[in-house]
Amino acid sequence: MHPGLTRRRFIGVTAAAAGLGLLPVGGRGRAEASVVDWHGEAMGAVASLRIHHSDRGAAEALIRRAVAEVRRLERVFSLYRDDSALVALNRHGMLAAPPPDLVEVLAQARHYWQATHGSFDPSVQPLWTLYRDHFSTPGAAPSGPSSQSRDAALALVGLDGVAFDRNRIAFRRRGMGLTLNGIAQGYATDRVVGILRAGGIVSSLVDLGEPRALGPAPDGHPWRIGIADPDGLGAIAETVEVADRAVATSGGYGFRFDAEGRFNHLLDPKSGRSAALYRSVTVLLPDATGADALSTAFSLLPKEEISSVLHRLGDGEVRLVTAGGERIVLSPRGREDRAEAGGGMIRAAARLGCA
């Protein structure tokens, strides 16, 4: 089972400076638009960046800054690079003088761990390793790991077992490990949005795994983001319209350990079992970091508890597809609606929460 299979296949950034629409190359807006494209790989996925700007040099500089920022964050958060700060932490159980971004993401993780009463917990890495190793073994029991081995892994889970400040990060129990795949893509998205905004971009759609819209689309209408159909590979189940919002989707269909699909990557830090309440959970919030974390946590919570968290946050929207196929929309006001399906433009793929 190659770890790359758990990564998204495409990320993208489309952006325009003030006064410019997103035009085809050679088109004209309210100012002459230079269009700069970049193609490559970032965050373990195929990447494409396109920036429209009246100053070609400024557009090229923004591309370089965005790519450099993503590369820098990969060296902090990646579980697939031997030289990343996170790999070093997991290997040694301690990290002195940690990168400030790692400390910041852990602080954000602790905030959502507390807000969800422990349902968002990046210390589930020992559980992920347990399931990966079990189902990678020839002749593995289709019922999954034994209860004894699951209990042993669960004993290593709990964000309260991670001590951190700007000087040091340390695990309180030997064998603990972190995965930040349930929050790091959102954090990286927010950082790129900040770079674009500082560079004069007023309209953009940044998708590093968790799409975030900066402002409305250039025509003044909201951006339309499609939510993946959990039952149809590559299909769109519905679309949402957003401006200055992020969209994150989690679903057990994103990665499954076994061929039957009984065991997925959304692991409950309390029971050690895979999420089964919903086929898909989509969270809309102003920032991608929060949307990313909560789409993971909400995959494990009944809708009443999700509503309670939204009420405490005072913001956001959650769109659920239940195990039985019912579509529900929850808001902080406690209102519950049935979601309407529709066509889509951009797929918000299932977020893969663990390495």
Rank of each mutant, 00 (worst) to 15 (best):
A115Y: 04
Y187C: 05
T189Y: 02
P222C: 11
A16L: 04
R273W: 10
V318I: 05
T296V: 12
G261Q: 12
A163E: 13
S295I: 00
A15I: 08
V242W: 02
P3W: 12
L284D: 01
A213N: 04
L106F: 12
V13P: 00
R319Y: 05
S136H: 12
S146A: 14
E41T: 14
R335K: 11
G19R: 03
P138T: 09
S204C: 13
A163C: 09
L310I: 07
R335M: 06
L277W: 07
G44W: 04
A141E: 14
L49F: 15
N90S: 12
V202M: 02
G186S: 12
Y187R: 05
G324P: 00
R197D: 07
D55R: 12
L154W: 10
G175Y: 14
D219N: 15
M1G: 13
W38V: 07
H311C: 09
G144Q: 03
G93K: 08
S204Y: 05
P302C: 07
A61D: 14
S271N: 10
I51A: 01
S78N: 10
A355F: 06
L208G: 00
E74W: 04
L320Q: 03
V157P: 01
R172F: 06
V202I: 11
L284V: 09
T129E: 14
W38H: 15
V162H: 11
G19W: 05
A96F: 06
